[in-house]
Design a protein around this nucleic acid. Structure first.
Ligand SMILES: [Mn+2]
Ligand SMILES: [Mn+2]
Ligand SMILES: [Mn+2]
Ligand SMILES: [Mn+2]
Lengths: 216, 216
DNA sequence: GAATAAATTTAGACAAGGCTAAATTTATTA
DNA sequence: TAATAAATTTAGCCTTGTCTAAATTTATTC
């Protein structure tokens, strides 16, 4: 079908497309950890296969066919992450790298049965939505905690940074998915945020607040 | 660590080594479905890495390091097959190709937890032993059904041919792992075997009898 | 609206793995 | 034991995906 490299490019273009309309060569190179010239080569191949719309110097976006493939990979990634955490007792900061490999297991029948086995979960361990077998999922309307006003409340429903370091920090602070928080104060000097949670008061940096996604 | 191609070569050498002391280039080429010249190239690479003992024109065998890697891949293969059958309800003839991909997922921690999750199974869906996390497993002393005398009894504990066609045939005849059988008669003309099982009498060809492994 | 800077593409190489055809070595046979 | 056959290796080429350096295009700035 498609090679591992092609799948990774499509997935990356999908993720970057959430922020920008057209994804640039350099953006992609930085994200994939490769060189711009390598990206250009691959973009030509993907355009040839009609998986992306590519105009030289103008960046790319996914075609419907390309997006379908990207979403399927993301579905696999998130279902495997859910499996690793819920069935094999891994922590949420341990599963991403393994899922990066497992998302390329080709069988869709396998992933559909895995989905069923786990009871059709709607969100992965990091709060990200899991597309169903038709590629459909709701995009939660979440706000970064840094955009929430004093005295407003909400529930932690996602993270923007998936690095083990960040996830471990959150875990230690009990800032986990599903936690209810209220913004008690925003420090003027550095925009640190003081949170009131069910059990205690926590102060976090703007940086951290920026990477925590909240449902009101 | 090692590439996917390298892992497949090591695994293939391991399997072929069960029958012959030294594995020849042509044997390997036929088994892996590639050309002899490609095999020679890879053998040089594996010898360079000290994973095989290779003397040009004389065939190869695995070093201790190479065997360890091969057994680990086989462990993964068989545990994933067990998972697919026991947890995801696949049939025993459907899982091999998927496991061929899954055996290359690199994390050993993952496979050890999967092992635990399933209760440390000792045999895969085809009756093959599953190496433990140290690579240890008992080699069952099984005989092909074709080597069993009239009136002797035994239990089906393995198959030599893993093709879907063969496995589906066995399933249809209820000749599954764990089934107790008695050899009622061996037809002189073509060495067909007449079996008495718990529920009925079945006649199978010599070909089939050759590929059924029995514990006495 | 040039001139410079930044982004992107092109050219040319390389490693991994595979293939075909030719050369070489080993095995068989007369 | 010499001749032939079979097995194996070598030589040379190809594709994928990557890289560096050079060329080109687009964006900024004076
Ligand atoms: Mn992930
Ligand atoms: Mn995730
Ligand atoms: Mn198998
Ligand atoms: Mn098996």
């Amino acid at each position: 079908m498609n090679t591992l490299a092609e799948e990774n490019y499509l997935k990356s273009i999908y993720h970057l497309s959430l922020d920008t309309e057209n994804v640039s060569t350099n953006q992609l190179a930085a994200f994939i950890n490769t060189k711009a010239s390598s990206v250009t080569d691959m973009l030509k191949k993907l355009a040839e296969k009609a998986l992306i719309n590519y105009t030289p110097y103008q960046g790319v976006n996914l075609t419907v066919a390309g997006e379908k493939i990207a979403v399927n990979i993301i579905r696999k990634h998130r279902l495997w992450e859910y499996f690793l955490v819920e069935k094999l007792d891994f922590k949420w900061d341990e599963v991403h790298e393994m899922a990066e490999e497992m998302e390329h297991i080709s069988s869709n029948e396998l992933i559909d049965r895995l989905d069923k086995f786990m009871g059709y979960p709607k969100h992965d361990p990091h709060g990200d939505p899991i597309p169903d077998c038709n590629g459909l999922f709701k995009i939660h309307n979440l706000k970064p905690l840094s955009a929430i006003a004093v005295n407003e409340s909400g529930v932690i429903c996602g993270v923007r940074d998936h690095s083990p370091a960040f996830l471990q920090y959150l875990e230690k602070q009990s800032l986990i998915i599903g936690k209810k928080i209220t913004v008690a104060e925003i420090i003027e000097f550095d925009h640190s945020v003081v949170l009131q949670t069910t059990d205690k008061e926590i102060q976090i940096s703007r940086e951290v607040a920026n990477n925590l996604l909240i449902a009101l």
